[in-house]
Design a protein around this nucleic acid. Structure first.
Lengths: 340, 340
DNA sequence: CTGAAAGCGCTAACAG
DNA sequence: CTGTTAGCGCTTTCAG
């Protein structure tokens, strides 16, 4: 049986209250002598508090629930890893819930979460496009958890927390503009999951760039995938059929799918076709033709998410904050001036 | 305030005991009428039990602690993802602790874990090479957690659980033999972290293959990295200096580092040098020159880990089991017959 | 079939 | 400076 505060109290000949106080160190009502003794005994038996009991009485804990998409995407694992690092350092725990990248299912998730009494949640799931009513509904449910919530998008929540955003629109804009500046006019796009807000945002940026260059938007040039490598692979023949000279892929994973398909079809990147990705995962730089892409500062964003979660737990503050990160073009070798 | 069992009891005009019994459904001592009423009210208020309270009284929970190395390695994230999937399905939660791939620090980790009262732990951290005394010491500490422990290596623990192993030795053997069969004789090796047992195992396999082909083992041909891409990158010039014609990399990540370095040095794979990896991460197949590698069935292994954790929690069984998975050569394009 | 009561390990008033 | 006490939300005997 694990040693409890009671065992220590008995051994030291003091009450449990004294032990609790001595160990927490939060009060100087305890004499040096007793404190020292208590600590010594606690160490002797390698005492560690029972978190369930602590969080039951305190009504909160240093456990943080992290909700995110599928880890097989290195972009996601980078975020999770960054968050985890911060939490460990601040001795918080992390309960992770990795969801397959499919829309829906939040309802069930939230009810399960409400059983755990975590101190905060990091909701790093892609935001679905929602109408006003759905938005309010989700807000009500999430807010109902009664803890601060950090998100990775503008969820328009009313509970304490922060929205750590990225300007996907500008990212899409930068990507398309880069291609346009290289002279491309028929620019295909491998979009991600249709129902995600971030997909729409990138598309908006793409369209804005086209407009600036007076290129008409052609919906036939958009292929909707689901952010997996495989969907990039499938997009390739379709877009080639559309005679595009360049492709903007909404994430690097799908761009890699494009690479693989191009190899199969004997199409050379960037000689025959330019490709630009999005995310800047570590692998982008390993390919034989390093991938030009849009950098998303995942490390910084993950760290911010983690630090804020800890801060909200520790200070109990109640504001809702927001921060927006900006994209950056990583120019590498997969894009080039149009030759025809 | 979250609704508790007490609120429901009051609303239904019954005692808390009755509510508990009715909701758990484990007893037929409750009349249909009351049960129905209790359930209706619980749903109305979206009641969910407070896990802290439950686990405090039951002295265990359906929360599983998952300890693993750094997620930036896709091989690790695949395992974590597979585990997570089965836990979700069995409505268990997962507390994750991702450790940087450095030796040591288990001590602190275990004491932190002992505060959470999880139902099981999955210890998917690489095993360090240890002497008899250290082995016993670790066993004592881990066993001291008082819960079943699933590992990914032969930890020789005495607590309930399972060792889900992989035959790394045979993997190393297959890799080296493949190269030998292609006629290579000076075969470099990018080893992983020196202090890991799995590193030693792969090396043993490599040496065995050399012996079978009567090739003398040359320690100068071994470069110790740390399983990161970067260490593969650094290994390259060293091994080229040793005039090797082929390289066995102990994981795919490091092989990718080799790829990147080869590109920089203008060395062609496989024309100038053959490369074989280990793991078979999804990317291995995306490279312009798809990577020949040794497959580790991470999906199956992760699933086994998760299922066993659930099984041990649900049945309370106390044996210690063991299962060993076998390697498989994935022949692709990065290795070829020696031409000189 | 149902209620009362004890207790899981710990904290936080409130007394002393 | 230290002990007593009342609970946090829930399960589980043990009576009724």
């Amino acid at each position: 049986m694990k040693v409890t505060i009671k065992d220590i109290a008995r051994e030291c000949g003091v009450s449990v209250a004294t032990v609790s106080l001595a160990l927490s160190g939060k009060s100087n009502r305890i004499s040096q002598a007793t404190r020292q003794k208590v600590i010594a005994v606690a160490e002797k038996y390698k005492y560690t508090p029972n978190n369930a009991a602590v969080s039951l009485v305190k009504q909160k804990s240093r456990m943080i629930t992290m909700v995110s998409n599928d880890l097989t995407n290195p972009h996601i694992s980078a975020i999770v890893m960054a968050v985890s690092r911060v939490l460990e350092k601040n001795n918080c725990g992390m309960i992770s819930r990795f969801l397959e990248s499919e829309p829906g299912g939040d309802r069930d998730l939230i009810s399960r979460m409400s059983s755990e009494n975590m101190g905060a949640v990091i909701w790093a799931k892609s935001l679905e496009i929602m109408d006003e009513q759905q938005t309010q509904q989700l807000d009500r449910e999430i807010t109902g958890l009664g803890v601060p919530v950090m998100t990775m998008d503008q969820y328009r929540l009313s509970c304490p927390g922060i929205d750590v955003c990225f300007d996907y629109r500008e990212g899409g804009y930068l990507a398309a503009r880069h291609l346009l500046e290289l002279g491309h006019r028929r620019i295909g796009c491998v979009a991600g999951t249709r129902s995600f807000q971030v997909t729409q945002d990138r598309l908006d940026g793409y369209r804005q760039a086209l407009a600036e260059f007076s290129v008409e938007y052609d919906p036939e040039l958009i292929y909707y995938g689901n952010y997996t490598m495989n969907s990039g692979y499938e997009a390739f023949p379709y877009l080639m059929g559309q005679k595009v000279t360049a492709i903007f892929s909404m994430n690097d994973e799908m761009a890699f799918g494009l690479y693989r398909a191009a190899r199969n079809y004997g199409v050379k990147i960037p000689q025959d076709i330019s490709v630009i990705g999005f995310d800047n995962v570590p692998f982008a730089d390993v390919m034989e033709v390093p991938l030009t892409t849009i950098r998303v500062p995942v490390e910084e964003m993950g760290q911010m998410l983690g630090e804020k979660a800890v801060e909200f737990i520790d200070t109990g503050k109640t504001e809702r904050e927001k921060i927006v990160y900006r994209p950056q073009l990583m120019l590498r070798a997969s894009t080039r001036k149009i030759t025809r």
